[in-house]
Every structure is written in C-alpha cells, then in structure tokens.
Design a protein around this nucleic acid. Structure first.
Length: 457
DNA sequence: GCATGATCATGC
DNA sequence: GCATGATCATGC
C-alpha cells in the first residue's frame, strides 16, 4: 500500500515516504498508484536516482548548490548494494556527493564550503544492484542519515588535504587513497577526460567529492543494525509516549478526518475495518506494523480495537485465536496465549465511539465514528490468575473429556467466555477424541471491557 | 436487549 | 488455504 502524498518541508515525512519502497521496486509503486501507463514513457536509460525523484518524490530536483529538498534541508542519495558470496548485502560503490571545480574550490574555507550543506541531512536509499531493468530493482534500506561529529572531524581533515593538494598545483596527483572518509574520486568519462587546474599547467582528471566505499560500508552496517532505525526513540521518549504523541492529533476526531489527513483507503466491508485503519496509520507514522517495529516487538504489544456504543459500552466482546483442541489438553497455563501476553507484554486498546444508534457499523458514516481513546491495558492479576484461569481450566477439562457443548457462557464467568470463531458453521476441527467439532475461541466479555475502560478514565 | 451462533475480507 | 480480528445475525 503506497501513498503518493508527503510533506516536502518535513524530513521525517520525506523519510516515511521513501521508506515505502523498502522491499519494493519502482514499478510496484507505479502500478499501485495507477501510473503504470507512464511506465512505457520512462526509459531505463535514466539514472535510478532520477527515476526515484520523478516517480516517488514527484519533485524537480537539482544537482548542484542547494539540497534536493530545499525546504527540509534534505539531500537525496540513491545508492547500490551488492550481494556478497555469503549472501549478505554490502556497499557496492562510493557515494558521490558533488563535482570539484578546481578553480572555485581554492577560495573556499571549510567553515563555509559548499559541501557541508549536502552532508547535514541525507536521505539514503539503498537498493540491491542486479542485472535487471531499473524499475524492477528492489530497495533494501531507506533512512535519514548524517555523519557524526567525530566523523565530521575526519571529513574536515580529508577536505583540507584535498584542497591543499590543489593549491600546491597537484590536482593531477589526487588519489582516493590519500584520505580516510572523504575522497576525491574520478568523475570523467575516462582517463583522457581532463580539465585545467589553477596552479599548474598539467591537466587533471575530473574529480568529485565522495564518501569512500569503506566509510559507506560502516555507515550501512550501522544503519542496518540500528534497532531504533524506524523510530527515533530518543526524540519522543518511550513507546507509550510515542503512541500517545502519534494519536494525539486525532483524538476525539472522526475516522473520516484521520483517513483524509493521512490519505488512507480501506474497504468498508472488512469486518476488522478499524484494525486495518490503525495498522495502516501506525505503519505510516512509525514506519512499520506495530508487531514488526523493534521497540514494540520487545515490549510485546498486542493491538486491539474496540467500538463503544453511545452509552459507552462495547457492542462486541473481544475474540482471540482459535482453540487448538488437540493441543490445549496438554497446554500449561504459562503457555496460554492471553496469559503469555500479560507475562511480558500488554494490550494497546484503540477505542472508537459511535454516538448514534446503529445496527451495522458499516452503515454508520465515517464522520460519526470518533477516535475516542488510546490506552495500554493489562488484565488485573486477580482477574487473570483466578477468573480467567478458571475459564481456561474448565475449557481444557471439557475438551479432555470430549464435552463440546457445555463451555462457559457469558454469564458463567465474570471476565470471559467461549464462542464460535470459524469461516462458517461447517468449518470443523479434529478433536483429541478423533471427532470433528466446530471451531471456537476464547473471548473477553464486552461488559468486562466496559468496566476496565471506565476504571482507566 | 442480550447471549450466542454465524460469518467474512484480508494477509500470510 | 486457512487463521485472524473482528462484526453481523438470530433467537429467546
């Protein structure tokens, strides 16, 4: 699911937009956004960087003085990776920054040079170089990046070394081997493509400033290992704060607004419409599914969406995974799904409210569905270890003796009950007794959820 | 109106 | 092809 719109004044949003290409190629983006008709007009002769600029950022980019995304101060760099024999990905070539004009550069000082603005904030887009059309090349990593302070000191030394060599009339002797991170790489058509230099009559090869392959290799390593690559945790604090920060502009506002503001489109007929909506929203804002994001994976966050009636109670109870009849009879309480979530994780409840009477939610106008509240939740210890465990034990016991018609109903247990969950009434599962039974699952009672929400506010 | 049974688009 | 994360439908 690719979006087309991004904020070209906001580096994070430019990054977010670029990240959509990770594990995808330009052709997929074109087809998804129904621009496939222009595929034929885009020849593969263009540089891949230019294709990214045109197709993804829809932006007329320049090549010289100013950063590509001028208002955000972001420079775009599209650069290839290669696959090593052992299968790992590695930098294929140096990152070329800007041509060196031997005559102009000698009057520049480090403090005011034209290179630094290009290094302040770079959107690096790494793709895997393969022998196939450019539109089919797969992008592997997209990230905002800039050299660290320590790296900048070395780059400064390198820069001065290169400038001094030109001032000594030795531009023709420049070599990438001279320097550490910043190199003066050949940029001519061939060895005979030479230009004049200010302090010698000897012509020198055209050269450009570049970040050397070895340096880029360490940058790539650092970025691909970085667990906080997707979210800048230090910016906003812990994941609770990040979630609150992410949702806060949309609290007490309609789903219609949230969708329009983020250009999200979802089939209204999907029963888990709200879940899809929040999934897409989080993906957009934080760069990945909530289950996939490193910081959230670590915290074992389980997302659930809830819809409240106008009286503030949920219309529906909450379902979980199907009961595996042949497995539950040997299951330990410690391994039970809902208990496990509580052990080292928590729920993220995204709560909607509909202030009108309705029968089917899909008939309610999106402007009447309000994002009411976002909260983290854990089942209180007693409720889990006694009441819900009682439900689990009862269910496990009944399955072990082959009784599939007397599971606990909503009135038998304060917290939860057992109810069908299947494709239809003919969707059966084999039991330990060898018979076939309708598929069912554990639920949490709507009335209990209502209580928990009230308790939290 | 509530409890329970039945169902469905989506994604892996 | 099937589980998932829910909502929809029905009957008392």
């Amino acid at each position: 699911m690719f979006t087309q719109v991004y904020d070209n004044k906001n580096p994070k949003d430019i990054e977010r937009h670029g990240k959509q290409l990770v594990n995808h190629c330009l052709e997929e983006y074109l087809i998804y956004n129904q621009k496939d008709k222009i595929i034929n007009n885009l020849s593969n002769k263009g540089e891949i960087g230019q294709l990214v600029e045109t197709i993804i950022f829809n932006y007329k980019l320049n090549s010289i003085k100013e950063p590509d995304f001028k208002d955000a101060g972001v420079e775009l760099k599209v650069t290839p990776l290669k696959k090593l024999k052992n299968g790992t990905l590695s930098i294929k070539e140096r990152l070329v920054l800007t041509l060196i004009n031997f005559h102009d550069i000698i009057s520049e000082k480090w403090e005011t040079n034209t290179l630094i603005p290009k290094l302040r904030c770079i959107l690096l887009m790494f793709y895997l170089h393969e022998d196939k059309p450019k539109l089919k090349l797969i992008f592997k990593l997209v990230s905002l990046w800039h050299p660290s302070c320590n790296d900048m000191k070395i780059i400064e030394k390198d820069w001065n070394y290169i400038i001094n060599k030109i001032k000594e009339g030795k531009a023709h002797e420049l070599s990438e081997a001279d320097t550490n991170y910043l190199g003066a790489c050949p940029k001519g058509k061939n060895k005979d493509d030479v230009v004049s230099q200010p302090f010698s009559n000897i012509k020198a090869m055209r050269r450009a400033f570049s970040l050397k392959t070895s340096y880029m290799r360490s940058v790539y390593q650092e970025l691909s290992n970085s667990k906080s690559n997707l979210i800048n945790i230090s910016d906003k604090g812990n994941f609770e704060d990040i979630i609150k920060y992410t949702f806060s502009p949309y609290l007490k506002k309609s789903v219609e607004f949230l969708m329009q503001d983020n250009d999200i489109h979802i089939n209204r007929n999907v029963k888990h419409f709200n879940k899809e909506l929040i999934n897409d929203f989080i993906k957009l804002k934080l760069g990945g599914n909530i289950e996939e994001l490193e910081e959230f994976k670590k915290a074992n966050i389980k997302l659930k969406t809830i819809v409240l009636n106008k009286n503030g109670t949920p219309k529906e109870s909450m379902s979980f995974k199907q009961i595996q009849y042949k497995e539950i009879i040997n299951e330990k309480w410690e391994d039970f799904e809902i208990n496990k979530i509580h052990e080292d994780g928590r729920f993220l409840w995204v709560i909607f409210k509909i202030n009108k009477s309705f029968k089917k939610q899909s008939d309610v106008s999106l402007s009447d569905i309000i994002l009411d509240k976002v909260m983290f939740w854990n089942m209180p210890y007693h409720d889990l270890q006694y009441e819900y465990k009682r439900l689990w034990e009862d269910t496990k016991y009944k399955i072990s003796i082959g009784d599939y018609s007397h599971f606990m109903g909503i009135k038998d247990n304060y917290v939860g009950h057992i109810r069908p969950k299947a494709r239809n009434s003919h969707d059966l599962m084999e039991t330990p007794q060898g018979t076939m039974e309708k598929k069912k699952c554990f639920w949490i009672n709507a009335s209990y959820i209502a209580e928990q929400i009230k308790k939290a506010s």
